[in-house]
Amino acid sequence: MVSLGSLLHYGALAAPILGRSVLGSGCHSVSTKVIAETPVGSYLESTIIRPNGDILATSAMGGSKVYTVKGSSSRNPSVEEIANVYGVQSLWGITEIPPINGVETYVFVGGNVTSLTPLTPAVGSWQAFRLSFPKRGVAKVEQIGDLGRETALLNGLTPIPGSPGSVLIADSGRGTMGRLNIIEKKWEMDAFAEPEMAVLPNSPLGMGVVAAKFRDGYLYFASAPTFIYRLRVDWKGSKIPGAKAELVVDVSENFSGIDDFVFDRAGNIYFTSNAPTNALGYINSRTRENMIVSGGVNETILADCASLAFGRSQNDKNVLYVARGRGFTGEQDFGKVVAVSNFDK
């Protein structure tokens, strides 16, 4: 059961992850620093920041594991494996939901993906899991359930405003978004099936919608390869009857694709673009202009960057933590978390 206190807490969760608008006329002087490395062969796919400032990251290759980076804003961050999830080979999206019975709670998804090159997910293998952090004791992972025989490639997750305990999950392989209520264990596979979410013909990765966020009465979603759209929704996160998706931006002039995105408090968008662009991108909400903040085709610091999140403490609220994989062919490389800061210098 979700308390009123949880609903109030959820108001903060449902809002975009905040950071100030930091890009001015140029962004060439940003600082990038690798603050954590996960074991050889790991590929960090999705990341979220806990209220205490620790980072959670899922691994899509090198074992179905959840890692945490403790003391991310300190001089000596440490990395720990907090869960080794059985029954699936690969973990993808993760998001925070309101506490359940006062317990800090996250939802993540996983399935069987045997290769990233070419991308080979097993249809029907996808499951949802709950990750809980009791006030005392160790983190606990529970399987919520299988998500159907037709699910293809579950990717980004986002909590639903007005529906505590529920999340939207992008099925990039189907080009739709499903709605999961983890309290009732109810799964609606195609809650959103907009044409703009679909897998485009001849898509090299066979992916449609990859990530989504709610903001100011809209569902914003990134759809492969290079588009961000928005769709009018009600307070419970359902589509307004008759609403049509509108294009926010196409970043194909500067980027090969969009993997994940977040808002700053001014409504500007930061996003990851993995191989071959290998860069952190920025979209000005007013002009819709886009640019590379850090990285680029010939850079390695953000190679295969997959997800990002602003810090949540006073020390790092203007720092973007970018989770990255390894070179798609570099099986001896490491997963990494990169702190990007000093945008405005």
Rank of each mutant, 00 (worst) to 15 (best):
Y10W: 13
G11N: 13
G11K: 11
A12H: 14
L13R: 03
L13K: 01
L13A: 09
A14W: 08
A15S: 13
I17W: 10
L18A: 11
L18T: 12
G19F: 11
R20C: 02
S21Y: 05
V22K: 04
V22T: 15
L23A: 06
G24P: 14
G24M: 12
S25E: 15
S25D: 15
S25L: 15
S25Y: 12
S25P: 13
G26S: 09
G26W: 04
C27T: 12
C27N: 06
C27Q: 03
C27S: 13
S31P: 00
T32Q: 08
T32E: 02
V34W: 00
I35D: 00
E37N: 02
E37I: 07
E37K: 03
T38A: 04
T38E: 02
G41H: 05
G41R: 01
G41Q: 08
S42I: 09
S42K: 10
S42W: 03
L44R: 07
E45C: 02
S46C: 01
S46I: 09
I48N: 10
I48F: 11
I48E: 15
I48V: 15
I49V: 14
I49G: 01
R50V: 03
R50Q: 05
N52A: 04
N52M: 09
D54A: 09
I55Q: 06
I55V: 08
L56V: 11
L56Y: 09
L56F: 12
A57C: 11
A57V: 15
A57Y: 12
T58R: 06
T58C: 02
T58K: 01
S59Y: 12
A60F: 07
G62F: 01
G63I: 12
S64K: 01
S64W: 00
V66D: 09
V66Q: 03
V66F: 02
Y67H: 08
T68C: 10
T68K: 13
V69W: 03
K70T: 13
G71C: 03
G71V: 07
S72E: 03
S73C: 06
S73V: 11
S74H: 05
S74Q: 01
S74T: 13
S74K: 06
R75W: 02
N76G: 05
P77D: 07
P77M: 04
S78C: 08
V79L: 01
E80M: 14
E81I: 14
E81P: 07
E81D: 03
E81T: 14
I82D: 06
I82G: 06
I82F: 05
A83E: 05
N84L: 00
V85A: 13
Y86E: 13
Y86G: 05
Y86C: 06
Y86M: 05
G87A: 00
G87P: 10
G87V: 06
G87D: 08
G87T: 07
V88K: 04
V88P: 05
V88Y: 08
V88D: 02
S90N: 10
S90A: 11
L91C: 09
L91T: 15
L91V: 14
W92Q: 10
W92T: 14
W92K: 10
G93N: 00
G93M: 00
